[in-house]
Write a protein that binds this DNA or RNA. Structure first.
Lengths: 234, 234
DNA sequence: TGAATGAATATGTGTGCACATAAAATGTCA
DNA sequence: TGACATTTTATGTGCACACATATTCATTCA
């Protein structure tokens, strides 16, 4: 027999509270007891309860407000985490051989739709890069990228035959904020040619935009080859 | 002039360390000083550094191991969080009118591809539900769902004219584990009819599977109408 | 040599305490 | 009555300390 731990861990506390929420002992939208009362009830300190609560809040189960107390979310959400590695790593993790090919690279003022992604209006001096990632010589992902040259002039010196813009940026240009959008598009003629698929084929597309502080760094539209699946981190 | 806080908050500490990582003061894969040493250097307690480190680890910037120490991830990842609300809430949050329509509901043994989602082999007694979510009377999302009847027999008593299976499950049937997959499909004839779009149109699809402990609860394939975009929580 | 053993060590966690802070609740005054 | 100031209160945070636990690393013994 396994003796229960003499002292309650914050994980135990979290699990107790979570179980109560899931069992609707604390119903949707209900207010939970104060941390201190829960601590007294369960026989641990407020610190431990606090810790458990933090975890539940991060998981999107409860909502905490100073003075307002802790409430179960009125309407529940499913929260998932997605990890997006450098494309090279992603391909290699599948046990496939990675390669990439530069399609185009030219300096140009950013058009309005691109600036919209950054939430800005005024056009900026950018580098526009097209590139194809390959897995086992087969098209894997097609990148259409814009890099802000005012905030990342070093990119001009990079040899994209050696390293993809994707990887160079991730390794050399940190960001503090990222926004991503996922959607599906039908392959147009050019995309189909690049990805070697039928025109019209449904392709998962990820749009990723990053900032360093408030300064735009890069935005990329990555179109995956047919069959691509994005999964949540278990 | 704003006097700097006499005491360092864990957020300050986190930002200092993060800045160092981003500036590559601690390069990719590099080992960070022990919490205690950092605490001494920065002038706070180990508790505070620990807290900061936890946050950085959760953000996917560093990797911590007992005795092994703290390392910057060798190859960086972009980690994003996605919140998926009940479809009704999602529609209403867009300021649109929600409705749903039951398409089909029948008891059947689960076929192999469905069991594969649960990571199981043996077929089980399930309820197979087809439903359409509408926004402003227009098709918004098409659901194809399977519910394990051994673990959720109550679903048989639910009137899907009153509440969608999606919402009923979220409100009454908790889960402890969820896995999601995102991909793009071309609308087949039947899907196109239901969603009132062209056959072949690219549609974002979300596959969601939940368990309570090890017990399968439900798995759903939700096909969104054209134009649907899934965005990360800012 | 190589597997088993044991010590060393960095992170993980619990307790107890004090004070900070945001927001709700209450009170005050024109 | 309504705008404003004040108090109250639940969560947020920092500190100091002790002990737990998972690894790594060195040591021992067959």
């Amino acid at each position: 027999m396994t003796a229960p731990p003499s002292r309650l861990s914050w994980i135990d506390v979290r699990d107790v509270i979570r179980a109560r929420i899931l069992a609707r002992d604390y119903g949707l939208g209900a207010k939970l007891p104060r941390d201190e009362d829960l601590a007294a009830e369960l026989g641990c300190t407020r610190t431990t309860v606090h810790r458990a609560m933090q975890d539940l809040a991060a998981a999107g189960l409860i909502d905490r407000k100073r003075k307002g107390g802790t409430h179960v979310l009125a309407d529940p959400i499913t929260r998932a985490t997605i990890d997006i590695p450098v494309t090279r790593s992603e391909v290699q993790a599948l046990g496939r051989t990675y390669a990439h090919r530069l399609i185009s690279s030219q300096r140009a003022p950013s058009p309005a739709p691109i600036m919209a992604r950054f939430g800005a209006a005024q056009s900026r001096d950018m580098l526009h890069i097209g590139a194809l990632h390959l897995a086992d010589q087969k098209p894997y992902m097609l990148e259409d990228r814009w890099v802000d040259l005012a905030n990342c002039p070093e990119i001009l010196a990079v040899d994209f035959a050696q390293i993809s813009a994707n990887e160079w940026l991730v390794r050399h240009k940190p960001y503090t904020r990222v926004e991503m959008r996922f959607f599906a598009i039908n392959a147009d003629a050019e995309t189909a040619t690049q990805l070697r698929c039928r025109a019209g084929e449904a392709l998962l597309t990820v749009e990723r935009t990053t900032w360093l502080g408030d300064a735009p760094i890069t935005t990329v539209q990555a179109i995956a080859a047919p069959g691509y699946v994005l999964a949540t981190k278990s």
